[in-house]
Design a protein around this nucleic acid. Sequence first.
RNA 1: CGGAGCGUAGCGCAGCCUGGUAGCGCACCAGACUGGGGGUCUGGGGGUCCCGGGUUCAAAUCCCGGCGCUCCGACCA
Length: 440
Amino acid sequence: MRLSAYFLPTLRETPSEAQIVSHRLMLRAGLIRQSSAGIYSWLPLGLRVLRRIERIVREEQDAAGGQELLMPTIQPAELWRESGRYEDYGKEMLRIKDRHEREMLYGPTNEEQITDIVRQAIKTYRDLPKLLYHIQWKFRDEVRPRFGVMRGREFLMKDSYSFDLDYDGAVRAYNRMFVAYLRTFARMGLKAIPMRAAAGPIGGDLSHEFIILAETGESQVFCDKSLVEFEILDTPINYDADLRPVVERWTAPYAATDEKHDPAVFDRLPADRRLQARGIEVGHIFYFGTKYSKAMGAVVTGAKGESVTMEMGSYGIGVSRLVGAIIEASHDEAGIIWPDSVAPFAVGLINLRPGDAGCDRACEDLYAKLQGAGIDVLYDDRSESPGAKFATFDLIGLPTQLVVGPRGIKSGTVEVKHRRTGQREELSADAALTMLTAQR
RNA sequence: CGGAGCGUAGCGCAGCCUGGUAGCGCACCAGACUGGGGGUCUGGGGGUCCCGGGUUCAAAUCCCGGCGCUCCGACCA
C-alpha cells in the first residue's frame, strides 16, 4: 500500500477526551474514530489489526476443537425470557422493538441463542461433545463507557460455548479453552495470567479471568510473581490428551481477582513473590453446568435411554479490547510498538526523497519485491520532510522500517530500523530483502 | 446512579467575568526554498460559536430549558 493513497488520518495533537495512552494512540495513529459514547468506527489501519487479532483467535479456537458459526446481533426477547435473564440483565441490555412491536434486543452475549440452536439440533449423547464459537459484535449499554475501545458499549467479542454430556466432559472443554487462551494471548505478545474469578451474572462456579498486567487496568489483582515468567508456546499441546497437567501448572501458584482474593493465603507467600497490581481482563472462561440447558430444555437421550441435561460452559475473548490492551502493554513516547503477530503491516518503507531518481528506483524495486514475497508493506511515497515520515511510522508502530535516502543510495545501502529496539543497521538492498523475507 | 467539568474551523485552545465586525497554534490549499527525526518563508481557504427559547438597539458572551461529550466514584467483560 502506498501511503500517499492510503486512508490514514493521523493526528499530531491528542483529542482532549482521550485519557489513557492506548486511547490517545489509537486516535492519533488513525486506527479508530469515535461515533458516540463507547461506539467507534474502525479505520483501515485499525481494522487490519483487529483482523489479525481475530485470525490468531480463530486459529487457536480451531486448533482446540472449536467450530465457527455466526449468530445474529439482534435477538428475540422470548429466548431471554426462557432463561430468566430478560429481566435480570437490567439496563445494560439494549432493548428495541421492531415494526410489529415485537420485543428484541441487541445481544450482549449469546448463551440463549446458542442453547436454542443446540437444543433443536442435538438429541442424542452420540452428538456430544460440541464446542461452538463465533466472533461477533456485542452491545452492552455501560453506565460509563471509557478508555476508548477498552470499555466500549459496542465491542467485538469471540465467545465459545461448550456442550457436554457430563461434568468431566465439561471440564475437559474448560481445560481446552484454558490452554487455547494461554496460547492465544502469548501469540499476541501478551503476558496474560489466569486468575480465579467470580462468575458474575452469567452464573456458574468454575471461572478464570485472563488478565494482563497494566497500570491502567480496571481490575485489582493479586498473584504469585512467578506466574509472570511462565511460558506456554514452548509447550507442545495435544488437545486430545489430558490437559490437566498444563492447567494445574498454571493454576497452582496463587492468582486471584479482588472478588476471589483470599488475603490469608496470599500473605503466606514470601514477600518478594507477592504481586499486587492492576490488570486488564482480556478473556474470561466459565463453567456453569446446566444453568441455561435446564431452563431452556437442552436435553439429550443418554446411553441407557435416560434424559440428560447438557453441561455447558462459555468462553469469551474481548477482541476489540485486545487492540487497546496490546497498545497499553507495548508502546513508547513516540507511539505504538506492534508485536509482529498483530502488526497492520510488517514493514514500513520510507522514501526520504521522492523525486530523486535513485531513491525512487530503489524504493519501487524493494516495494515490488517485498509484496512479491507476500510481505505487507506500507510505502511512504509522500513528499513530506524526513522527520515527518519517521514520526508517522514511529506513531503507527510497524515492527520494521526500511529507510531509503540519498545518503544510503550513494553508498549502496538502505537502513533497517527495528521499532521495538530502535536498533538500526545499514545493509545492501538485497541483504535487507533477504533478512525481511527470512523473518517470515 | 451520585459528584465535577466541557461543547467556538479537522485537532488543541483563547475570547465569555465587564454584550458591540470571531481569534491563535497545528493541520489544509498554492508557490518558493529545504531535505536523515513532525523544516522555513510568502500568500490563501475554511465557522449554524452544540440546539431551542428569553432579555437587549445588539448575544459566542447574560438568563432558562434541552442535547451531546468527558472525568472521579459506584457498577460492569
